[in-house]
Design a protein around this nucleic acid. Structure first.
Lengths: 211, 211
DNA sequence: GTCGATGACTAACAGTTGTTAGTTAGACTA
DNA sequence: TAGTCTAACTAACAACTGTTAGTCATCGAC
């Protein structure tokens, strides 16, 4: 009676190192719950229940809730950064600045609307996360930010205005990220929205004449 | 049972009543805390402490935390809706569609960056709020949404594409709302950002030729 | 001067939170 | 076969959550 039979749990595939399967399961579930309910409204018991564990068992895999959040949200930024980088690399070095921007728009949108949920968990949760978590994530975030800074700089050319480049970048990312709050796959088209954002950013750069 | 039944107190429909000063204080503090920490991370004890009360005393003024949130977030939408409407009315009926849009952009930005915090509390908290709260706020939100739908429809003219109007509206509001996550008064200029968003939305509409 | 309403207080409730300590079954390794 | 490692378990902790019940001082109206 001391221990119920847990013996029949054997989801461990072959490829991964032995224990890492359930660790991955926990991260996946955490990303889903963080994305849906936010960091503060996701309890470790709910998370544990989602993966068929008890809350205490999570501490075998992670040192704390904060540490778990750092891993989930960290994977989220890395994921979108990699997606965007890969698509840009695919396009080759001869792609124009505006072509590269529209590739990045679609890649970013893909990452937050279709991917596993890590990136959207990051976007939705980061601002409400404890200070320690935010500090730990600063560098990875900066890395991704720099990709966009480069894209926008190339688009605006050498005679750009510094605050304008910043505002353009933040406006575009804001428009994209906000889609997490309204996008409905049954109603909306990611490609349609991407085209609109593209039209906006290109329109804003082209219209520098009436300044 | 010396306590009289306070059960049937109304939510202060009309003009200011006698005790409404501290009630207002509570709402103000709640807006501040909701905006800063989110709904879930704001405890009633923290809120009470902010206004020099004990947690239990809040229940003299509000039936529950959810009810309090409904009032704060409700005031937030109503506030921005009123700000935008007022500025549009000021502009008169002979203002062009694009003039009206740029007025609305600045009014919305003003409401979330400079105002009392109710509107920004709404924007930052709404998605993480209990379902009951979201349901209660649906109508007020719809009312404000309709203002923007009208503005965009006028801007795009009669031969507009329906999803495009929706995407344009949501992209603009997303760009504006996202500023809550990065805007730094010491570094950024609201007017500068407003000009950028204006350039984007006008650029997107003007470029319909290459379709 | 008494009365009732106002607007706060104290103290506690029941539930939940993140977290820790100690235990145990099974699987690998020597 | 004995010993160690892995990955889960149980049970509890202290702190905190929203909420309620009951008390009490103040103050204008009669």
């Amino acid at each position: 009676m001391t221990q119920p039979k847990i013996s029949d749990r054997q989801p461990t595939g072959g490829a991964e190192r032995r224990g890492s399967a359930s660790r991955r399961e926990i991260l996946d579930a955490a990303a889903r719950l963080f994305q849906k309910n936010g960091y503060g409204n996701t309890s470790l018991r709910e998370l544990a229940n989602e993966v068929g564990m008890k809350a205490g068992s999570l501490y075998y895999h992670f040192a704390s809730k904060e540490q778990l959040a750092i891993e989930v949200l960290g994977a989220g930024v890395k994921g979108v950064a990699q997606t965007v980088s890969a698509r840009l690399a695919e396009a080759g070095a001869d792609a124009s600045a505006s072509q590269r921007v529209s590739i990045a728009i679609r890649a970013h949108l893909d990452a937050i609307l279709n991917d596993s949920g890590y990136t959207s968990a990051h976007i939705r949760c980061f601002p409400y996360t404890p200070a320690a978590v935010q500090t730990q994530l600063r560098n990875v975030r900066r890395t991704y930010e720099d990709i966009w800074t480069g894209l926008i700089d190339d688009l605006l050319g050498p005679q750009r205005d510094e605050p304008d480049a910043r505002y353009l970048r933040l406006a575009v990312l804001g428009a994209l990220n906000w889609s997490l709050e309204w996008f409905d796959p049954a109603r909306d088209s990611a490609e349609g929205f991407a085209e609109m954002v593209e039209r906006m950013i290109l329109g804003a750069t082209r219209s520098d004449e009436h300044h």
